[in-house]
Computed example of a mutant assay.
Amino acid sequence: MGEFNGQQLTSISAKPVLKKGFTLVELLVVIAIIGVLVALLLPAVQQAREAARRTQCVNHQKQFGAAIHNFHAAYNGMPPATTGNTGLTLWAILLPFLEQRTLSDQLDMEASGGVDACTNAAHIGADAAAASSLNFNLLKEARISLFACPSRRAASDAVNNYNVPTGDYAVIIAGPQKWLFWSSPDTQQQALRVARAPGDTNLTNIPNGPVSAPVDFPNRGWRPRDDFSWVNDGLSNTVVIGEKHVTPNYMNKCCKNNHGPEGRDGFIFWNRSNGRGGYGEYWLAGSVNLGLARSAREGEELNVSSAPALGSWHPGVSNFLAADGSVRNLSVTIDPAVLIALGTANRGEVISLP
């Protein structure tokens, strides 16, 4: 209370009027606005996440490239794609150069090939059979994140129905053999070729092993077959590793339906391990002659001789490692002839990529 000119004044306090809650119409408008914002932001978030996953995939391949070059520096040659008909693959050979020396030091690299899944002593000798079996048992427990593309799965999920590790990268092959790439070592046209060996065995220097091959037979076991001079098309114009095509319905599945597409997710460390997580090489290698899958599901109904063996789950592109250690992002619409030219090491093609 107060006085002014003798008149009594009454204090009036102005209090804001607060509205309690929204009307139904207002609430629906707010929800609609939030929905529009989410619809606008979600694709951007998904694109950002996929870009990060693809970058991680590229980094995996760059590490493979560094490992191949470090192997070449150490042994004066490139690592072979596999050690022969049966046995260790490129991924096992590169382990010491991928910060996996603890595992690789336990492997017997001299017992790396043979027949009958490398465990039949009648074919490869008792010592070699025991060493090969030890290799297999060690590698089947390996779970290495580098071999899984994060756009497709986590490393912990890269295990097939035989409970052996699989992966999302393929050794590039080129030439007449589109999937069974150990049987014609002299006709292979890719950079990383299978180690040469007489017949179907590759145990020329192992005690108790086959004696049919001369002692000085070159390119045996895990040792280099070729050096960089084999890639005379140019290291930057020749791809050595690509992303393996695996369709969603057959991911983590292997070895059924007479070389059907569900066989692609096989044991990455072991070559041609019938009944032990793999069946043939089509889960290990990718032929450029079969083309590049344009989508995750392309060729799902086809068998291995006609389905694409290379392809990613990245929208519109697939990553490839070149022999110089760089990674190329190739469009899924690439000319098939250009892809074949990139996959061959010394045919003299002139390649022009956008």
Rank of each mutant, 00 (worst) to 15 (best):
residue 50 E to N: 07
residue 53 R to Q: 15
residue 54 R to Y: 10
residue 54 R to A: 15
residue 56 Q to W: 01
residue 56 Q to N: 13
residue 58 V to A: 12
residue 60 H to Y: 01
residue 62 K to P: 07
residue 62 K to W: 02
residue 64 F to M: 14
residue 65 G to H: 01
residue 65 G to R: 00
residue 65 G to I: 02
residue 66 A to K: 07
residue 66 A to T: 09
residue 68 I to R: 02
residue 68 I to S: 08
residue 68 I to Q: 08
residue 69 H to M: 13
residue 70 N to V: 03
residue 71 F to D: 10
residue 74 A to K: 13
residue 75 Y to Q: 04
residue 76 N to E: 11
residue 76 N to C: 03
residue 78 M to P: 05
residue 79 P to A: 03
residue 80 P to L: 05
residue 80 P to E: 06
residue 81 A to T: 05
residue 81 A to V: 05
residue 82 T to P: 07
residue 83 T to W: 00
residue 84 G to H: 05
residue 85 N to H: 08
residue 85 N to W: 06
residue 86 T to W: 01
residue 87 G to W: 00
residue 87 G to S: 14
residue 87 G to A: 08
residue 88 L to K: 00
residue 88 L to M: 10
residue 90 L to G: 00
residue 91 W to R: 02
residue 94 L to N: 00
residue 94 L to G: 02
residue 97 F to P: 07
residue 97 F to W: 13
residue 98 L to V: 08
residue 100 Q to R: 08
residue 101 R to Q: 15
residue 103 L to H: 06
residue 104 S to H: 03
residue 105 D to V: 05
residue 105 D to M: 03
residue 107 L to C: 12
residue 108 D to K: 01
residue 109 M to E: 09
residue 110 E to T: 12
residue 113 G to E: 12
residue 113 G to D: 14
residue 113 G to A: 15
residue 114 G to L: 06
residue 115 V to H: 01
residue 115 V to A: 13
residue 115 V to K: 07
residue 117 A to G: 09
residue 118 C to Q: 08
residue 118 C to R: 11
residue 119 T to P: 01
residue 120 N to H: 09
residue 122 A to G: 13
residue 123 H to L: 13
residue 124 I to L: 14
residue 124 I to E: 13
residue 125 G to N: 11
residue 126 A to W: 00
residue 128 A to H: 09
residue 129 A to W: 01
residue 130 A to M: 10
residue 130 A to Y: 00
residue 130 A to C: 06
residue 131 A to H: 08
residue 131 A to F: 02
residue 131 A to L: 10
residue 131 A to I: 05
residue 132 S to Q: 13
residue 132 S to C: 15
residue 133 S to L: 14
residue 134 L to C: 08
residue 135 N to W: 00
residue 135 N to H: 07
residue 135 N to T: 09
residue 138 L to F: 01
residue 138 L to K: 05
residue 139 L to E: 12
residue 140 K to M: 13
residue 141 E to C: 11
residue 141 E to G: 15
residue 142 A to I: 07
residue 143 R to M: 07
residue 144 I to C: 09
residue 145 S to Y: 00
residue 145 S to V: 08
residue 146 L to H: 01
residue 146 L to K: 03
residue 147 F to K: 02
residue 147 F to D: 05
residue 148 A to V: 04
residue 148 A to L: 03
residue 148 A to G: 09
residue 149 C to M: 04
residue 149 C to K: 03
residue 149 C to N: 14
residue 150 P to K: 06
residue 151 S to K: 01
residue 151 S to R: 06
residue 152 R to I: 09
residue 153 R to L: 04
residue 155 A to D: 12
residue 155 A to V: 04
